[in-house]
């Protein structure tokens, strides 16, 4: 009897702890909306407003006046979309070669590729800035897209995925039918690794969407700002108007949150696979 009581208590403690953790995780999203939907006057008092107000549209209108919100959103979308498509193509192609084709130095090249993942991006920041300005790509979306078009992590990910989910017999069969290597990749391998592509695609899209330091360095002009840089401008220049800033932040967070809620299964599964397989 006593034991049952103890179990119940520990269950309650467990649920309580998890609920508190989940609430703490979600609270800042709620808070973005609370501040973003109240007037600055309602926020700047003690105790502050704790429930959503009715000024969201007003605050949002001020955001649209001060920054080119939709332009920035579009830039982020173009950059993230282009990087994602390119990463999916080049990384799966290289992953196919590393996993199914024989060529001299293959394993050595692959180890080299893994080693490059250890290098922190800051190390090349200044020379990369110089290269981009030599190319005349400052204030040009290409400055952010081109260096990210194929990544070591992506190649690694696709190689592991192709190795474990495309049997050699399938490749051999395609060859007997007279497929070239590229056709084998395009018609046989790509359709077979769709789930792996989906996970890599979500990772890449979100990572690029949230990138901050590099776009900050190379995209100075307002017309090429990504949504992150535009938010930062909003925060820097109009720092007293928190309601307006947070309505902008909320609107900028919403698209990525929706994408996450749709694809959360692939995303969470992808993270655990990456970590546990290492």
């Amino acid at each position: 009897m006593k034991e049952v009581g103890e179990k119940k208590l520990s269950k309650i403690v467990l649920y309580f702890f998890l609920i508190v953790s989940a609430l703490l995780s979600v609270f800042p999203f709620y808070w973005m909306y609370v501040i973003g939907s109240n007037s600055t006057n309602a926020i700047n008092k003690f105790p502050p407003a704790v429930i959503p107000g009715t000024s969201f549209a007003d605050n949002a209108a001020k955001v649209f006046e001060r920054i080119d919100f939709f332009g920035a959103l579009l830039n982020s979308f173009i950059i993230s979309g282009a990087v994602t498509l390119s990463v999916l193509f080049f990384c799966s192609l290289a992953g196919f070669a590393f996993s199914k084709l024989q060529f001299k130095g293959r394993d050595g090249l692959f180890i080299f590729l893994l080693a490059t993942m250890m290098i922190p991006p800051q190390l090349g920041l200044i020379p990369n800035f110089m290269i981009i300005s030599e190319l005349g790509w400052l204030d040009d979306l290409r400055a952010v897209i081109v260096p990210a078009m194929v990544t070591a992590f992506g190649v690694f990910w696709m190689r592991q995925y192709i190795s474990s989910s495309v049997p050699f017999e399938l490749i051999e069969a395609a060859r007997i039918d007279g497929c070239s290597n590229f056709r084998t990749y395009w018609n046989i391998v790509l359709p077979a690794v769709r789930p792996g592509l989906a996970t890599l695609g979500i990772f890449t899209f979100m990572g690029t969407w949230n990138d901050f330091l590099w776009p900050l360095v190379v995209l100075k002009d307002r017309s090429v700002h990504t949504i992150q840089i535009a938010l930062r401008t909003l925060n820097d220049v109009y720092y007293t108007d928190y309601s307006m800033i947070l309505s902008g932040t909320f609107m900028a967070t919403l698209p990525i949150l929706v994408v996450f809620l749709i694809f959360n299964r692939q995303f969470i599964a992808g993270i655990t696979e990456g970590a546990v397989k290492d």
Partner: peptide, 29 residues
């Protein structure tokens, strides 16, 4: 549900995180 809620912060951009926490850590309000 718990997993989803707890994981959600990770997809938010650093910029958004920094802005909302700056507001939450305001001295006066």
């Amino acid at each position: 549900i718990f997993r989803l809620g707890i994981f959600m912060p990770n997809v938010t951009s650093v910029v958004a995180v920094a802005i909302v926490f700056s507001a939450m850590f305001g001295t006066q309000y």
